[in-house]
């Protein structure tokens, strides 16, 4: 896949009256990107904008033809996002969430079940999320991010709180998904054990690709 996966055009974001991000233009071809920046630089805000979770000025395009503002449903079908600290209603079970994601995002249920087994999520899927540890919740959110048929997966601090075995599975999933054409954008303060295509740096309210 040689064309751009995601294009940010004149994107800016303010919280109250404080400008947080101002990205004139950014185009990313297929690859695995490591999004870096200091605390508070705007990494999570950038990811949330790319995922269509928060409003912003400008527009974001996927594969050059799906616009976040004009085709919001198709856009969300092609992009998945896992939060750094996922938060769900306490009474929901992992199964409730997985079922919802599979119904809306689509994807192969059996394949997701296999990923769940590899991550060790299948054991506690029936339990309410209030009984999960932060690591269990993180693994569930990582499982959800592989539902559907996305072209871009955004992982916000995926390495925190999960155990070493799950980390190995996650790296393997990223590699195999990338081989199938999925692009990844990952924030992490820890070094990544992946061959990254490029490093994105958030600084001075802009993002640059190195």
């Amino acid at each position: 896949m040689s064309g751009p996966v995601i294009t940010l055009q004149g994107v800016s974001k303010r919280y109250q009256d404080v400008p947080v991000l101002d990205i004139p233009s950014l185009t990313l071809p297929s690859g695995i990107y490591w999004l870096q920046g200091e605390n508070g630089a705007g990494k999570t805000t950038c990811m949330k904008m790319m995922a269509g979770l928060i409003p912003f000025k400008g527009d974001i395009w996927l594969q050059d033809n799906i616009s976040c503002s004009r085709q919001p449903v198709q856009f969300r079908r092609l992009i998945n996002y896992a939060e750094a600290e996922p938060l769900y209603p306490s009474f929901l079970t992992g199964r409730d969430l997985l079922d919802l994601y599979l119904r809306t995002k689509g994807g192969d249920r059996e394949q997701i079940q296999k990923i769940g087994e590899r991550l060790g999520v299948d054991i506690y899927l029936q339990n309410p999320v209030s009984s999960y540890s932060s690591g269990m919740l993180k693994k569930l959110s990582l499982l959800l991010v592989f539902t559907g048929d996305p072209v871009l997966i955004l992982l916000d601090e995926p390495l925190i709180t999960i155990d070493a075995a799950a980390l190995r599975v996650l790296y393997d999933l990223i590699r195999t998904s990338h081989q199938r054409g999925v692009t990844f954008c990952i924030t992490s303060h820890q070094p990544l054990d992946l061959a990254v295509t490029g490093i994105l740096t958030v600084a001075n309210r802009n993002i640059t690709l190195n």
Partner: peptide, 17 residues
């Protein structure tokens, strides 16, 4: 408050308005 705190993830789903 409930929607704001817990249901942010629903906004990321490919669901029509």
């Amino acid at each position: 408050t409930f929607d704001d705190t817990y249901l942010g993830f629903l906004r990321q789903l490919p669901v029509s308005l």
